[in-house]
């Protein structure tokens, strides 16, 4: 009898453990420290503009309330051709300077730097500019950016093509 109960207890404990294991995991939060999706698959997102063979998908600028502060523009660049292109520079009136930057995370340490040679848009592929990664950096905002505002930025590519892009300002989710 006791033996049986022990066996049952073990079996039930195992069942309880299995149940516990089925709980949604609370580990491993994904890399969206409150931010947007990163562009996704080949046909996801809305093409805001096409420049040469590069489609600019879902551009947005981070709201920034600080007077004279900085911010960043994000988007996905999708290349529909077999030739590599690069986003080499950006310009506009929204900020004193507009540069191509990259944030990198090394062992929990955040480091940002200007991207030498621009951001590669691989042939028949895409690259995401997203929080914690590549971004078009707005240095010295002429006026604060609030959700719902629009700003204009010109993007220059290695192919020689450029485009004036209208970018909505959003609060990161």
């Amino acid at each position: 009898m006791n033996k049986h109960l022990n066996f049952l207890a073990t079996a039930l404990a195992a069942a309880a453990l299995a149940l516990a294991a089925c709980q949604p995991s609370m580990m491993n939060g994904h890399g969206d420290m409150g931010d947007m999706a990163d562009g996704g698959g080949p046909n996801e997102g809305k093409v805001a503009a096409t420049v040469g063979s590069v489609e600019i998908v879902d551009p947005w600028a981070r709201s920034a309330a600080m007077e004279g502060g900085n911010s960043a523009i994000y988007m996905t660049l999708r290349n529909t051709s077999g030739d590599v292109d690069r986003l080499v520079s950006a310009s506009g009136e929204a900020a004193t300077a507009i540069e191509i930057h990259e944030t990198k995370m090394n062992d929990g340490v955040m480091q940002m730097q200007q991207v030498e040679g621009g951001i590669e848009v691989p042939a028949n592929g895409s690259v995401a500019l997203k929080p914690g990664g590549y971004h078009v950096m707005l240095i010295g905002l002429v006026s604060p950016l609030k959700a719902g505002d629009m700003l204009t930025v010109t993007l220059m590519f290695e192919s020689g093509n450029s485009v004036e892009l209208t970018v909505p300002v959003m609060d990161p989710m």
Binding site: M33, A64, P131, G132, M137, L138
Partner: peptide, 14 residues
């Protein structure tokens, strides 16, 4: 730092 356009404002908004 307040000059940070990307990670810091993202974390504070979070």
């Amino acid at each position: 730092y307040t000059f940070c356009p990307d990670v810091c404002p993202g974390t504070l908004a979070l």
